[in-house]
């Protein structure tokens, strides 16, 4: 995809290109600014924080700042949730960090490893060695939602930066700027509603803003409509069916979500929680216990689809009580 094509998505078009453009994250910005003045001294970095707070954005800014026009040639960007296993570490990362084949002026190569907390333990252990061995050639920037899922030895080899959840004023302010640039009308209240519905995740908020804008003016009503369609609403349908003891229908939707659309099972779990808790006539304590159990099982099991299908069956039994 060329730049022109990717900028059709506002989340990409308005992705900050410099530290100054970054929303909030004062502390991170200050520390990084100092660090970037002495690139040779830069250690490996670990960015931890909730989704949509700017971790990947900052990683890309660093790559651009330090590697200049050729940053794409010397940056390896991998998403660990796509390729979680040890093979990716052994093959791609090792190959990329093996040779010093850089033009002058390039201090080192950069490996951006997004969602590193999704990596298996084995893969992290393998990564740890590579980080040491290749420190002359490459710097690693890892991003993670929870730094606690990163093994201790890797954490200790990184400078850790904590990204904080963005406040509603910041996110709404950024959305206003986008609306002004794009010339689309908005109700202020609608922007706050988007913030709320996207749980403070800037990326999610901007995508919702754009979807709403495609349909017309950004009003509270339109925002609600947009959130009421699409994959998110499929989850809602699924939860309804499950609670009405229509297991087959519910599982049919689950299969669509996972196998046709390839949604993240963890996010499906999150959405199920939101929808179940919004459901009246249900013992919410029992429901929460059940969801907590299956959320845990989801992270332990080998087949997420089986886990979620079992949850749907249990929701059916729960609504009966």
């Amino acid at each position: 995809m060329s730049r022109v094509e990717t900028t059709m998505m506002w989340a990409e078009k308005y992705r900050p290109m410099a530290l100054d453009e970054l929303v909030d994250q004062e502390e991170v910005r200050e520390r990084l600014r100092m660090m970037l003045e002495h690139p040779d001294e830069m250690p490996h970095l670990l960015f931890a924080g909730p989704p949509g707070t700017g971790k990947t954005t900052v990683a890309l800014i660093i790559a651009r700042t330090l590697l200049g026009d050729y940053w794409r040639d010397y940056t390896l960007e991998l998403n660990a949730s796509d390729e979680r296993g040890i093979d990716i570490v052994r093959e791609r990362i090792k190959a990329f960090t093996r040779y010093v084949d850089m033009r002058s002026g390039i201090p080192f190569k950069i490996v951006i490893l997004d969602e590193a907390d999704e990596m298996t333990g084995d893969a992290q252990t393998a990564l740890r060695r590579i980080m040491e061995e290749s420190s002359r050639i490459a710097r690693f920037i890892l991003t993670a939602n929870f730094s606690s899922n990163i093994i201790e030895p890797i954490q200790s080899r990184c400078a850790v930066f904590r990204f904080v959840r963005l406040g509603e004023k910041d996110v709404a302010g950024f959305m206003k700027r986008i609306c002004d640039e794009e010339g689309c009308e908005y109700e202020e209240e609608a922007l706050y509603l988007i913030y709320e519905l996207s749980s403070g995740d800037m990326r999610r908020a901007i995508n919702q803003l754009q979807a709403t804008a495609v349909l017309g003016k950004v009003t509270v009503e339109n925002v609600r409509n947009v959130f009421g369609v699409g994959k998110r609403s499929l989850v809602k349908d699924m939860v309804h069916a499950a609670l009405k003891e229509e297991f087959n229908k519910a599982r049919g939707t689950l299969l669509e979500l996972i196998r046709v659309y390839g949604l993240s099972e963890k996010d499906i779990m999150k959405f199920i929680f939101e929808d179940v808790m919004a459901y009246k006539n249900l013992d919410h304590v029992e429901a929460a216990r059940l969801l907590a159990e299956y959320d845990y099982r989801l992270s332990r099991g080998s087949n997420p689809e089986i886990q979620l299908a079992a949850l749907l069956a249990e929701l059916g039994a729960l609504s009966r009580k």
Binding site: M1, E12, T56, N79, D201, N207, G230, S264
Partner: peptide
């Protein structure tokens, strides 16, 4: 790849838009 997110995240949060 173009949006710097995982495949699952693209499908979950970008695809509808």
């Amino acid at each position: 790849k173009a949006f710097h997110v995982s495949r699952k995240e693209f499908m979950t949060y970008y695809f509808d838009t």
